[in-house]
């Protein structure tokens, strides 16, 4: 949705090195060390995956690595909890369909 650039208690958003991640093939700028889910939410990405049977959209729910609602395919590995996995330069992130592709690293 948007980054909170200034905050009455937390102050201005600190400067941070940028990394580029690739979300469904598109380059996205993220803050080094931040969680994938935060970077994606900052871009306004509406959903992170679709369910197996009914293809319903899902996104973050608990935000602290408990519920697994926010899982995506990261660098070819499906079911990675994006709310507790930090971005890395060049990371390839894909909206996951169903259980994801377990065919190994691509």
């Amino acid at each position: 949705m948007q980054r909170i650039l200034d905050h009455p208690i937390l102050g201005p958003l600190p400067e941070e090195e940028k990394v580029t991640i690739y979300v469904d093939g598109e380059p996205v700028e993220a803050r080094k060390g931040e969680m994938i889910a935060a970077a994606l939410m900052a871009t306004g990405k509406p959903y992170f995956r679709k369910t197996v049977k009914r293809h319903e959209p899902r996104s973050i729910f608990c935000g602290i690595g408990r519920c697994t609602d926010c899982v995506m395919t990261v660098n070819g590995t499906p079911n990675v909890r994006t709310c507790v996995t930090a971005v890395e330069e060049g990371m390839v992130i894909e909206t996951q369909m169903g259980f994801g592709d377990w065919g190994g690293k691509r």
Partner: peptide, 25 residues
């Protein structure tokens, strides 16, 4: 309730105060 945008209050708090991203407007 499973729609993206429905989340725990604690999740929203994590997003705004830790990650500095608004989950919505």
């Amino acid at each position: 309730w499973t729609l993206p945008g429905v989340m725990g209050a604690g999740a929203a708090q994590t997003m705004i105060n830790i990650h500095r991203v608004l989950p919505g407007r």
